[in-house]
Design a protein around this nucleic acid. Sequence first.
DNA 1: TTAATTTCTTAACTTAAGTCAAGGATTTTA
DNA 2: TAAAATCCTTGACTTAAGTTAAGAAATTAA
Lengths: 196, 196
Amino acid sequence: MKEITAEIKKSLHTFVNRFIKTDDELFNTILGNFEYYNTARKELLLEAGKVADKVFFLPEGFVRFFHIKENGIEVTSDFYFAPGFITSFTSLIEQKPSIVNIQAMVKMDILFIKYKNLIALYDQEHKIERLGRLLAEQVFISSEKHLFSFLNDLPQERYEWLIREYPEYIKNIPLHYLASYLGITPESLSRIRNRT
Amino acid sequence: MKEITAEIKKSLHTFVNRFIKTDDELFNTILGNFEYYNTARKELLLEAGKVADKVFFLPEGFVRFFHIKENGIEVTSDFYFAPGFITSFTSLIEQKPSIVNIQAMVKMDILFIKYKNLIALYDQEHKIERLGRLLAEQVFISSEKHLFSFLNDLPQERYEWLIREYPEYIKNIPLHYLASYLGITPESLSRIRNRT
DNA sequence: TTAATTTCTTAACTTAAGTCAAGGATTTTA
DNA sequence: TAAAATCCTTGACTTAAGTTAAGAAATTAA
């Protein structure tokens, strides 16, 4: 079982301090609640049907959210790049089975905190509750952007929006995942790209 | 200038206590920060281009979120029914000009709290910070549902999802607003409804 | 480094939604 | 309550995306 490196600690510290200022005591309280984990590429950090009982922190790498529709089609709903906290918020908040799978896109060293420890931290420290509020606000904003791309734009324009808003997606993510993120088939995305 | 009635106080109390338990002192602290306002039907509670500086509480009635695209087409992005807190979260959180307009759909008596007072309450009371976190989580969940309807379903299925998930929409909301909420034209919605 | 798998593209055809236009029904408001 | 505005539907036509199928290219893993 590998240790939490100084580099990983620093990444967590920097990220948390974007939202709240932590003195040593508070940061050590937070850090003390996290455990280390090493994922394989393509490993599921959360499986659809199970209740989310952890929040992950990614100091590196990125993950994909996806689910399988009744007709068997796989839908990619989101990507998160490091650094950041990752979980199925809906499953975690409601403590109900998750709709989505969360999949590691690359092999990576990550941290996680258990749900019950997070809740205890919320009770214990006003500042951590604030961190929770600010993070919830951020995931809302990012979800709303994705939603607005559907309300405002045709598939072709959604693709243009995507490369404008998230240029790193194009470099790192297989196109058929991007297609379903955009709500279109891989064939359509291929045609859209070749009619510029 | 009309007063805040006992009925409105009760509505706020009941709603807040779904999320946090408030003793008299805490509830009076919250209530003391709200002011009364009476809207006309179709009045804009927030105009696109202005920074959101209030959060509204609706004890009754409902509102519509909409914006105008560059091509002049109006898009309805959301509806909120009473009871609940209403604002452009994105504009409020980032303190940037709002994309959306918020429009009263009926004449109603409402409350509002100013942004700076809300921030002060967050600092002052851990429990209110928690309320903020829980509300942010709820708006995320509701935005994600709307998003998933686009990722999972064709327009026809999205309409069926809407009447299943939000039957009250059909009874209260003009169809051309629902059409743009579903990302389709009024003509298409009309055809979808007439091919059951 | 080769075999297996995954990823991406192209083509032919189908279908559902968009566009443009018009008119009737309903609701609002003066 | 009558005029105005809004709301909803229908029809004819266009267009963009879906479907099915096949194969080439690239990547992964044995």
